[in-house]
Design a protein around this nucleic acid. Sequence first.
DNA 1: ACGCGACGCGCC
DNA 2: AAAGGGCGCGTCGCGT
Length: 780
Amino acid sequence: MPLFEISTKEQDLALLKKSKTRTKTTTVKKSGGSIADRINTIKAMVETHLGKFADETIIIQDEQTLSDYVDKCLKNGICSIDTETTGLDPLQDELVGVGIYTPGEKTTYIPINHISYVTGQKVKNQLSLDVVGKYLAKLNADIDMFNAAFDIRFIKNHTGTRLKCTWDAYLASRCLNENEPNKGLKKLHQKYILRGEEDAFKFDELFKGIDFRYVPIKTAALYAAHDPKITWEYAEYQRNIFRTKENLKDVYWVFKNIEMPVVDVVVDMEDTGVEFDMEYNAQLKEKYHKILDEKLEEFQTAYHMYDDEINAYKNSEVISDEYIYPDATTSAGKKNKYGKATGKKVSNRVKLDDPINIASVPQLQALLYDIIGLKGPIDKKTKEPSRSTSEESLKANKDNAVVKAILDYREFATIVSTFIDKLPECVNPKDGRIHCKFNQYGADTGRFSSQDPNMQNIPSHNKDIRKMFKATDGYVMMSADYSQQEPKCMTMMCQDPLMVNAYNQGKDLYAEIASLSFNTTYENCLEFRPDGTTNPEGKERRSQAKSILLGVLYGRGVPSIAEQLKTTTAKAQEIKDSVFRGFPAIEQFEKDSQAMAEECGYVTTLWGRKRRLPAMMLPDYEFEYIDKDSSDPLSFDEDGDNEVPANIVRSYMSKLSRAWGKKKQAIIAEAKQEGIKITDNTKNKDVTKVVNARIQGSAADMSKLAMIMLHNDEKLKEWGFRMLIPVHDEIIAECPKEHAKEVVERFAQIMSEAPGEKFTIPIKCDVEVSERWYGDRITL
DNA sequence: ACGCGACGCGCC
DNA sequence: AAAGGGCGCGTCGCGT
């Protein structure tokens, strides 16, 4: 790690995404001024903004004081804790100090690893990690934290004491409002406790690039001791909200019984990490870079056929938005538009690198659409040929050698740069393992997310990549995935007796839906006949039913489903109607969910998690008279003077309900002419998210419940089972070889028992065992 | 030099 | 005429 770095907990969350750039090379020098200057600035700023707290802060520098404070915490039964560190990695960065607070007492800061920036020597009068650990272990009280897994891991890995957090204010904040834009403790405290009365001083900037160890203890204490206090204040505020709002009962259940227990699972998964095979990676590197180089050459050879045109482009005279070929033999005098990559103004003529940068969208656009003169697929909105260079758009011109070369290159480019080249850089040199960070409430639906690296988007289609991850020596890897987790959640939520039946009879749901919707036998809707031969018609029926169901689940429109099924919109609509006729409960579920969202502004999962979609409460359109004369005091009269009469509203509504796109714009424009302002809310209403949030969220609840049960299972613990990566409907884990057999059985069993009485249909769960992630299957 | 949005793409 | 939910990240190129 670079020497001069700092991370405080709040920055950790607030700057979650920027962590990589921050931990890379930030130095005191780059941040300006000598270290002494920087420290002096920090001293002065902290003094100015936090000096008022000096009398309320205790710096704990001896065992007795710590012991006394721990006693106070025990007496109160509650405290809050926050750590200061040199970075974001609990395995490689240092624990600098710990702040503890218990209500009614002074705030404290325990310096542990401060260093004099003058002498470079460790500052005297600091407690050791051992002693701090010893007393933290006695903290048998409720503990508030913010982003608890981070602090628990730091304290665990440096002092040996594993704290148990009772209230993670970050997770509570996510449960209370997943749309909250502020993710950091200080900002949340500012907003909800101080209510914006005081200026939020940007400590992030102040401490940027400074190793917290070099901050003098007195200064550090003022800053650091404040954090546990605001953590507690914010947590208290949250507890009060949960207590007083009856409609948060279920959300509270999710918080206490799902989110908080998952914290301990995350701590273990992050600390465990996954073993990464560097040698195998080196082999892949060679193999794939060779391929990539070949593809790049093919691209260059292909576009060299257009060298004349390229030169003409480069030498073209630029006139405003257009250019003219000076050479009459090519596209003589013809004007061409170009250079609108993002819809906003870009440079008039794209500067082409030599060789042309295949990774540059603007350069490819110039090459394909201006120089070669290809026409992309028609853009739905502008109705002009698209200038997109996405795979989908390029396919329209896949006969062109340059386009083909780009597609070929792209197939490997992501795999090489994102996975083969990047993953080895993520390996912790101390143990040869990759320890990514899991954000257990990363997605607003309740799903996990993963970063540094993202372990949830490792290619599965390409088997080479996942094989870089292997089981610890003496262990086997295993992955258990829920089959059809989301359709099953949907079945449980809509309680369609036919769907429930299908699952209870062990039938293939999609085939059953196809059978009942298209009035044919179940057997006629399967991909294979009983004799093992393929049945193309059955396969098609099944896939149609599947598309419709998943379409509903994803909030997908009929035209999109039509495209997937390679049929017309009308036909897709017909199929959808059939399915809805056969399974009215699906349509009812969709309607109920939309109604719930429109009425309450949120939807709920099977276990009571909420997804707030407040825009759903807005009417589709709002009507008001535009003030003709703003100087007229009457025009500001609130008593309905601006209200458009109901009959006029009705007339517009009926017109609008039948109109789309430009027609709709025309109606709104027409109304404006007549002095009526129509606000179109339909584009802001998250109709497509409504059903999906319920299903995806329920599935996330279910997976988390499984993780908790797996983590707490005594037998699995005994057998050395440990989870490694949650991939939404799948859990990757490992265990010592000798226990593989019994672990597999119990693993699958617990997974299927996890949803408990909420599920009245069987859950099947296959567990695959291998040496490597997606390696050859081992039969036990 | 760095932050950020757009784009494109990997996963479920 | 209509067009897919949830993520993280590499790269580019603009803006500061």
